[in-house]
Amino acid sequence: MKKILLLSLALMMCSFAVLAQAADTDPVGNVPALGSMKSTAGDSMLPANDIIQNIAADKDLSIFYKFVNSANLAETYESKGPITIFVPANEAFESLPPGKLDTLFKPAHVWELTHILAYHAIAGKFSTKELHKRINKHKGSTTLTTISGGKLIAKTDGDNNIILEDETGGQCIISRSDIAQSNGVVHIISKVLLPKAKAV
């Protein structure tokens, strides 16, 4: 279970005007606001540190860090990697259904939490340049296989921002990208990605 990884999310359009304009041209379709494009998460990260060291030191990622510890996944994120991880900032957890955050912290839900966290990570190092390259090669979207074995769809919106779509149809945007780690790369997202429910 320790070899399973992470959560993640993203941010989208800031104003109603942008959303209204994008409704006709955005290949993602009529999607609710995906979050602010501005993010301070990741400001304190140093490329010489591993993913866990950097997340632990960033107050804007404290909820995700607590989740990683609750699921006993710190050792996984400290591994040599490389790992690409989509990390939800603290405000991203507001997108979860009411009460879900507290439920995930309960010991009885550790498997569900681990599955969600692993759904936010991909083996290998994927910069936004590489993601754009794959999206263009596959004519508008590409499928990413997460460490949990689940699938994420990556595509771009009308402003060339990378959109991630999870297995439940939820969508988010990468709000801050390409934060170098000693064992991979971190992309900050503004909503939690949710895999399909998995029977235990």
Rank of each mutant, 00 (worst) to 15 (best):
K59Q: 09
K59D: 11
D60G: 05
D60N: 15
L61T: 14
L61E: 11
I63H: 11
I63K: 12
I63Y: 11
F64W: 07
F64R: 00
F64P: 01
K66T: 13
K66H: 11
F67K: 00
F67V: 04
F67T: 03
F67W: 12
V68C: 10
N72T: 10
L73R: 05
L73A: 08
L73E: 06
L73V: 07
A74I: 02
A74T: 12
E75Y: 03
T76S: 14
Y77E: 05
Y77G: 14
E78F: 01
K80G: 04
K80S: 13
K80M: 09
G81T: 04
P82C: 04
I83T: 10
I83V: 13
T84H: 07
F86R: 02
F86Y: 12
P88L: 01
A89G: 10
N90S: 03
N90V: 09
E91R: 12
E91W: 08
A92L: 00
F93Y: 14
E94M: 05
S95K: 09
L96D: 02
L96E: 02
P98C: 01
P98K: 07
P98A: 06
K100F: 07
L101K: 09
L101N: 06
D102G: 06
D102K: 07
D102I: 06
T103Q: 13
T103A: 14
K106H: 11
P107V: 05
P107Q: 06
V110T: 14
V110Q: 12
W111C: 00
E112Q: 12
E112P: 01
L113V: 05
H115W: 10
L117Y: 10
L117K: 04
A118S: 07
A118V: 01
Y119M: 00
Y119C: 00
H120W: 03
H120E: 07
I122H: 04
I122A: 08
A123C: 04
A123S: 11
G124N: 01
G124T: 00
K125S: 12
F126C: 06
F126P: 03
S127F: 02
S127A: 00
T128L: 01
E130C: 05
E130P: 04
L131Q: 04
H132E: 06
K133Y: 09
K133L: 09
K133M: 09
K133E: 14
K133I: 02
R134I: 07
R134K: 14
I135Q: 08
I135F: 09
N136T: 09
K137E: 15
K137A: 15
H138T: 11
H138K: 12
K139V: 10
